Simulated scan of single mutants.
Amino acid sequence: MSPRTRADRGRPGHKSPAKTAAGEWGCPTCGERHPSSFDTCWKCGTGRNGDPAGPDWAERVSSNHLDEPPSTLAPIGFTADGEPVFAVAGYTQDGKAVLADKILRVAPSSTRTNSWAVAAFVCAFLIAPLAIPLGHIARSEIQATGEQGDGLAITALILGYLWTGFLIVFVVAILRG
Score class of each variant (00 low, 15 high):
Ser2Ile: 12
Pro3Gln: 15
Pro3Phe: 13
Arg4Thr: 14
Arg4Met: 15
Thr5Trp: 06
Arg6Ser: 03
Ala7Pro: 07
Asp8Asn: 11
Pro12Trp: 04
Ser16Lys: 12
Pro17Glu: 02
Thr20Trp: 02
Thr20Ile: 05
Glu24Asn: 10
Trp25Ile: 02
Trp25Cys: 09
Cys27Phe: 07
Cys27Thr: 01
Thr29Ala: 15
Gly31Asp: 04
Gly31Ile: 04
Ser37Glu: 03
Asp39His: 13
Trp42Cys: 06
Cys44Arg: 05
Asn49Leu: 10
Asn49Gly: 15
Gly50His: 13
Gly50Gln: 07
Gly54Asn: 02
Asp56Val: 10
Ala58His: 10
Glu59Ser: 14
Arg60Gln: 11
Val61Ser: 00
Asn64Cys: 08
His65Phe: 12
Pro69Asn: 13
Leu73Arg: 10
Gly77Tyr: 15
Gly77Arg: 10
Phe78Gly: 07
Phe78Ile: 10
Ala80Glu: 15
Asp81Phe: 05
Asp81Lys: 13
Glu83Ser: 13
Glu83Asn: 11
Pro84Glu: 12
Phe86Pro: 00
Phe86Asp: 02
Ala87Gln: 10
Ala87Lys: 14
Tyr91Leu: 08
Gln93Trp: 11
Gly95Met: 14
Lys102Asn: 07
Val106Ser: 12
Val106Pro: 01
Val106Lys: 06
Ser109Cys: 09
Ser110Phe: 03
Thr113His: 01
Asn114Gly: 08
Trp116Phe: 11
Trp116Ala: 09
Ala117Ile: 02
Val122Arg: 06
Cys123Gln: 01
Cys123Tyr: 01
Phe125Thr: 03
Ala128Glu: 02
Pro129Lys: 08
Leu130Gln: 05
Ala131Cys: 05
Ile132Gly: 08
Ile137Gly: 00
Arg139Thr: 00
Ser140Pro: 00
Ser140Gly: 03
Gln143Asn: 12
Thr145Gly: 01
Gly146Ala: 12
Glu147Gly: 12
Gly149Asn: 02
Asp150Ile: 03
Leu152His: 07
Leu159Glu: 01
Gly165Tyr: 13
Gly165His: 08
Phe166His: 04
Ile168Arg: 04
Ile168Thr: 10
Ile168His: 06
Phe170His: 13
Phe170Trp: 08
Val171Pro: 01
Val172Asn: 06
Ile174Met: 11
Ile174Cys: 07
Leu175Trp: 10
Leu175Pro: 04
Arg176Met: 07
Arg176Ser: 10
